[in-house]
């Protein structure tokens, strides 16, 4: 047998890992089941609800091992293989256990030219891990993300598929990591439109507390 068949060049997911959840832990509550049924009813076919269902499962269990995917499949009533196919297609579904906080640092080209890799390397040095790895205490995972659609406020990162943190500097990273260690998620940052700054004197929203404005992007030191 050729070598590459025994040792595939690509790291494939372990399709049958030891189950992490079992018994009573591995179930949806009554409210969650009702929510899934509501989603199922809003699409012409039940399969439409699968992405909502997987999101719900990921929020509850933290990641999606096969037994959780099976649970979602059973709840919606679609085959496991199809559900597994969806879960593995999209990057935001975690198929393996991650840290408590997943830091997705955007390095796509707008961020790259404005210091995205500087931020990534600073974060790697600070936490002592490489991208794709999790710290020993299981608190942080660093990932390199593709364009997150916040090019005007580069460099930026996203915390666990949630809030965006814009205009990153090493100081801001330090403060963010300290806050996360205390269990404090960053607040929603509304980015002020430059035209609003001229015409309204600041952010147009009065219901958000943090309102940083577009600033000058930093100069990048490294590009890869």
């Amino acid at each position: 047998m050729a070598d590459f068949i025994k040792n595939p060049v690509v790291d494939l997911l372990d399709r049958n890992p030891e189950p992490v959840f079992s018994g009573k832990d591995l179930s949806f509550s009554k409210d969650e089941k009702a929510q899934i049924m509501k989603w199922v009813s809003s699409y012409p076919s039940k399969e439409g609800a699968v992405m909502h269902g997987l999101w719900l499962a990921q929020e509850k269990f933290g990641f999606l091992p096969p037994e959780v995917i099976q649970l979602v499949a059973d709840e919606i009533g679609m085959p496991y293989a199809d559900t597994y196919g969806v879960a593995t297609f999209y990057t935001q579904y975690f198929k393996e256990k991650k840290g408590d906080y997943v830091l997705d640092v955007c390095t796509c080209f707008s961020c790259q030219l404005c210091g995205g890799y500087d931020i990534l390397h600073y974060l790697e040095d600070k936490l002592g891990i490489h991208k794709g790895e999790t710290t020993a205490d299981g608190m942080f995972t660093i990932q390199e993300a593709e364009c997150l659609g916040a090019c005007g406020s580069a460099p930026m990162l996203q915390v666990t598929n949630g809030p965006y943190v814009n205009h990153l500097t090493p100081e801001k990273i330090d403060a963010l990591v300290d806050a996360l260690r205390d269990g404090k998620m960053p607040e929603f940052e509304s980015v002020t439109l430059p035209q609003d700054e001229d015409e309204l004197g600041g952010n147009r929203r009065t219901d958000v507390s943090l309102t940083p404005t577009y600033g000058v992007c930093p100069v990048s030191e490294t590009l890869s």
Binding site: C151, V216, C217
Partner: peptide, 14 residues
């Protein structure tokens, strides 16, 4: 217009 990169005031302009 979403202007990003090496400018003084990046952002979305209408």
């Amino acid at each position: 217009y979403g202007i990003s990169g090496h400018v003084n005031r990046p952002g979305v302009y209408e």
